[in-house]
């Protein structure tokens, strides 16, 4: 019995050392003032320009869409779907046109020692109005949503890895989406919460429905993270 405890303890120590040596990332960051997650009073910006499809030729073949139009078709559909899905979760969701962020410099926001989000943020001292001219309290800025197969987010956001040019293994076991976004306090012009999320769905027989399900998963994940980021 005692020997068993000792062995278990020893394995725990070994496991801790091994885990400790591995890279541990922090994928979310909250502002100390972020206490209350948005309920209904949310606006979204950038979804229409955020989607990127990786391995579009493969998708075109599988989905039977011409290779020329696959990128536009899938990303437009995904963007609309994401907005709709967010509307289901935040009933009074407003849309701020992406043009409001045009002309602003791309800035980076640090989540972790090695993880940096890149995106456009509204200026300090300027409140952004939605399409109907109202000033929303908080805005969900969707920076980028990458859709592909078997992706991992560290390859896109760890600055030590993003310049790697090693041969990529092209596997297609899972459908992956990597979404980076920021919850913006529009009244005080500060980032309340930022995150990089990765969602996956196993590929059985790929159809447009699978991609739609993936986008639904993103919307669910975003809501869950916004709540968790406020300490709920």
């Amino acid at each position: 019995m005692l020997k068993g405890v000792w062995t278990f303890g020893l394995w725990c120590i070994v496991a801790c050392i091994l885990l400790g040596c591995g890279t541990h990332y922090q994928w979310t960051k909250s502002h100390p003032a972020y206490r209350i997650p948005p309920r209904d009073d949310l606006a979204v910006v950038g979804a229409d320009k955020a989607f990127v499809l990786i391995r579009s030729a493969w998708f075109a073949k599988k989905l039977n869409i011409s290779a020329d139009s696959i990128q536009t078709k899938v990303t437009t559909e995904c963007a609309n779907l994401l907005t709709d899905e967010l509307k289901k979760r935040y009933s009074r969701l407003k849309v701020v046109p992406s043009s409001k962020l045009d002309g602003l410099p791309e800035e980076s926001l640090k989540l972790d020692q090695r993880i940096f989000i890149k995106g456009k943020f509204p200026e300090q001292g300027v409140m952004v109005a939605d399409s109907s001219g109202n000033i929303p309290k908080t805005i969900l800025i969707v920076h980028e949503v990458i859709i592909g197969t078997d992706l991992s987010r560290e390859n896109y956001f760890d600055y030590a890895l993003i310049h790697n040019e090693g041969p990529e293994k092209k596997t297609s076991n899972n459908l992956t989406a990597i979404a980076s976004y920021t919850l913006w306090d529009n009244e005080r012009q500060r980032a309340l919460f930022s995150a990089v999320d990765q969602v996956e769905r196993p590929i059985v027989k790929i159809s447009m429905g699978d991609i739609e399900e993936l986008v639904r998963d993103i919307a669910t994940q975003i809501q869950r993270n916004l709540d968790a980021g406020a300490g709920l």
Partner: peptide, 19 residues
């Protein structure tokens, strides 16, 4: 002027320089 306005919103007790 914009930065000053912004500072007015964000200069609150307990804040840190990095924010």
């Amino acid at each position: 002027l914009r930065y000053a306005t912004w500072l007015g919103y964000n200069l609150e007790p307990g804040t840190k320089a990095e924010y």
